[in-house]
Design a protein around this nucleic acid. Structure first.
Lengths: 381, 381
DNA sequence: GATGATTTGTTGCAATAAAAAACATATTAC
DNA sequence: GTAATATGTTTTTTATTGCAACAAATCATC
């Protein structure tokens, strides 16, 4: 019967609210959902019984009236997050509200093959299993892959840096672990995490561009929902044309954003062989030589062109820069914003802000977990 | 009580279905919505009473079993569509299922001011009022404006060709007519119409680019819903960079799509002073001179660059070309598609098709009406 | 052309859950 | 200490859905 569907919908709404904004009082939930006091009471009650949420002591807010207890996510439900990279496979256990409970980085000598990744993941999960089964309830696995992923069936169509091509990742991982598996592009999951727990909290139209070692990926949230596109490949801002006179990139495109704006060129002018994010950023902030300043400005110039196209087509309220793009912007404060302002349609620009990613190294763990939690949040029963 | 909300939702689902696909039988509706036979019966019954739908004779489909009557939109509910242009104001009366019942084009000597447009519209509506009040029930007014519109309050921020700037159109029109008014960008409404009744029927990820006399606008549908952006300005593909060495456009952008791909340049190589869409297309199709062929290919080349950026960022299943862009593509069949294929990320391109707009001159009437109908469809009570 | 099979509309009934109302409780304000 | 206020709790009411049994209208078959 349909009352059932209504219930599910309401449970989903309340659990999602608690997940996104833990600590809201029952009274707050009543206001936010528009449901009746008694209904919220019943919904929260049911979820307490199901070990999805817990009620905390009423916080005394110095306010007239009976205190309303806070509602927070229960610690039991967890998701497993996996992120294969060029030199490691990171596996995490993440609770609701985006709490990373555990993170295990398994380094590999060479880029892992899919089968290696699955083997490593299964082994780590096997090791964690006692804990997962006693203290927690695992809702599934989310995988963040640096490449193009067909989200419908979790097939990695192309992940050049891992040298993966049409790999049925979800299927293999389900087989090896028994858990439900969802797979998506890493940048799409990055924006999911930033939207829910980071710089994009509560904003419903935003874009995210992430600068990685090997290229620029991104994600789009429009009207409050993640835009995946027809197959899940949306968000590849790295291939936007920014310079008709530029060089060809790996895919054969001329003057794409990735060709003009990249980490390698920054490392070159800084005279560094390799560097992690922090070192690169410190080097950029400390640099005074003209070549470095010029290169930073050159890259920001090209970045601004891609951002303008995105602003004009998507009219976001917020642009989040992750990876080395955040460092690049920080190295010349205000410069990028002024360029974008100068080149966008005035009215489209007036409402947009540019900011850095707020979630640090946990970003992909949280994003991948969010993907796995989506099922639970959509249907808490 | 919430059952009320459920009812509303179900009524909305059924009415939307009937609006999009008139003539479905009640049995079809049952299958499409997943609701129970008896529920659909009650819902349709209520909407028949409210004069929202009518039941037609069962079509004999040579099928075993009791025939199921067809359900079609009632002719009573209508929306008023208004489209101000540089040389005219067009006002239409449009029924559900996208039927344009009446279209009145009121020509103006000069681009109408907002107040003129409101005056003309109010006068025409006054004239139509007897008919609207007896035979029909008017749900509201939708306006398609060639410019940037803040959809939240119906303020036209900027419509350069009409020379409008920050005009409170919705407010003025409501005051003058008494109807509820919604305003949006013309291209955004074009895609709405094409998605619902034209080339994009049933497709949930598509983009639309419209080539007009004065520029290129567009719209985006992602995940089945129209992407408006933070303020409603999304879809301005015309300002995408396609040529770093290009000229400046009216807004001051260098080498934007609008600068390189435009109607005026086509008319110039064709030796035409002015032309309507049909004349332009015939001239293009009939032309054999190298200058024309070269110009067509040049423009298609730049168009392909903008399309690639859009494909890579939005991963649509369909690209619809309207206005002179459709004619341009028709003048060199297959050329544009091959260019886009060559420059996009392979997997992103494989699922995309390029096609022409299917709705002709009624496009904006239907789109604007669709905007006005949205309220009714969302809540048929 | 009558009978059965099949599909679908119709009607009555049971189950569900949400909202409203009445009541209870815990806090602040005075 | 009492009133005011806000919020949790319990009970009652109500709306709507889904199910089941039945009715109706068609096709297929002999």
């Amino acid at each position: 019967m349909a009352a059932d569907r209504v219930r599910r919908h309401n449970l989903s709404a309340v659990l999602t609210l608690v997940h996104h904004s833990p600590g809201l009082s029952r009274a707050d939930i009543t206001k936010a959902t528009g449901l009746n006091r008694s209904t919220v009471s019943a919904l929260v009650g049911e979820m307490v019984e199901r070990e999805l949420v817990v009620e905390t002591q009423a916080d005394s807010r110095n306010q007239v009236g009976r205190p309303s207890p806070g509602v927070e996510p229960h610690s039991a439900p967890v998701a497993i997050a996996i992120n294969p990279e060029i030199d490691a496979v990171t596996i995490g256990v993440v609770g609701l509200r985006g709490t990373v409970l555990k993170r295990i980085r398994h380094e590999t000598a060479a880029p892992p093959t899919v089968r290696e990744m699955v083997r490593i993941s299964a082994a780590v999960i096997e090791q964690l299993r006692p804990e997962l089964e006693t203290a927690h309830r695992t809702v599934g696995i989310g995988v963040a892959v640096p490449g193009l992923v067909r989200t419908s069936d979790g097939v990695v169509r192309l992940a050049p840096h891992l040298r993966w091509h049409d790999e049925p990742l979800a299927e293999l991982l389900t087989e090896a672990t028994g858990f439900e598996v969802s797979v998506a592009n890493d940048a799409s999951l990055g924006i999911l995490a930033e939207r829910t727990f980071g710089a994009g909290r509560g904003i419903s139209d935003l874009i995210y561009l992430n600068g990685g070692a090997s290229g620029i990926g991104g994600g789009i949230i429009a009207g409050g929902t993640a835009i995946g596109g027809a197959a899940g490949y949306a968000g590849e801002f790295g291939h936007t044309l920014v310079n008709s006179a530029g060089r060809r990139d790996a895919v054969g495109l001329v003057g794409s954003l990735e060709v003009e704006v990249n980490r390698a060129a920054l490392l070159r002018v800084l005279g560094l062989a390799s560097a992690d994010s922090e070192t690169l950023e410190l080097a950029l902030l400390g640099a005074t030589s003209d070549t470095v300043v010029d290169e930073v400005r050159r890259q920001l110039g090209f970045l601004s062109i891609a951002l303008c196209s995105a602003v004009n087509t998507l009219n976001p309220r917020l642009i989040i820069l992750g990876g080395f793009l955040g460092a690049l912007d920080a190295a010349a404060p205000g410069y990028l914003e002024s360029l974008v302002a100068a080149q966008s349609i005035g009215v489209s620009f007036e409402s947009v802000r540019i900011t850095r990613a707020a979630l640090g190294s946990d970003l992909l763990m949280i994003g991948a977990a969010e993907l796995a939690f989506e099922r639970l949040l959509a249907d808490p029963k």
